[in-house]
Design a protein around this nucleic acid. Structure first.
Lengths: 124, 124
DNA sequence: ATTGACCTTCACATTAATGGAAAGGTTTAG
DNA sequence: CTAAACCTTTCCATTAATGTGAAGGTCAAT
């Protein structure tokens, strides 16, 4: 699968797919002509990257969190997992969930107040 | 409370407190000399802003989410709440929670695998 | 009254993520 | 064979959030 195909299937611009490779969170191989070549798993991978980026993770954090789930990274990497970083990021994720749940509840409560008292919405 | 005090109590640099005012998510009053003056609630407020920023929200989204929870914004604002935006952001928050929970579970599972099989950690 | 520690505004620099164009090679369709 | 549609690398621009410094006003203490 070439970069344009992956872009089409994920909705992520080729420019970004190259960027993700540059920062080390996506690892296509190269075909003879030098074109990047992606496997099927890359689709899921890219979507996960987008989710994490939109959740406020940096590419650096993502690099720690997606260690050996790489497509063309064979078993040697299985050894280089940084457990410490992974635990740190787990704490990170859990704190974020906490924050978001608190804010979700706050917004919900706020909305309920307005929905219960019918009347003014966004006037003028 | 002056800007330096608020910075000390929240750990957020004065520069940023001014920035948050500029983008309309923090509304100090001014004392006679022109100094910004913050009330006690500003502390909680700033901490909440930090949490949301670190969870990937932009200041613009925050402006929608923290509508009338302002310190010195009297009752007139009670009318200008953008319910539509608020509902949109609620969906946003819920999607994010979802993403994070999935990733938390994935990381947890991954960690368990490594913790169960004792041996190699991060060797050089 | 001067010093030091605050505060003000203004402006420019940086970082991460992203957009976009230039210059050139490759592949595919006609 | 040529043109269109890809791909490559390189470089420069933008946006949001932040850092930092200049030039100057205020205030508390000595």
């Amino acid at each position: 699968m070439k970069i344009g195909d992956l872009a089409a299937k994920t909705g992520v611009a080729p420019r970004l797919l190259r960027y993700y490779e540059e920062v080390g969170i996506l690892h296509p191989f190269r075909s003879a002509n030098g074109y990047r070549s992606y496997g099927e798993p890359a689709i899921e991978r890219v979507l996960q990257i987008r989710e994490l980026l939109e959740s406020g993770f940096t590419t650096e954090m993502i690099r720690e969190v997606l260690p050996c789930l790489d497509d063309p990274r064979p078993a040697e990497c299985v050894v280089k997992v940084d457990l410490e970083a992974l635990r740190r990021q787990l704490g990170n994720v859990e704190r974020r969930i906490d924050v978001l749940q608190r804010n979700r509840d706050a917004i919900k409560t706020y909305l309920q107040i307005w929905e219960e008292s019918p009347g003014v919405t966004s006037d003028s």
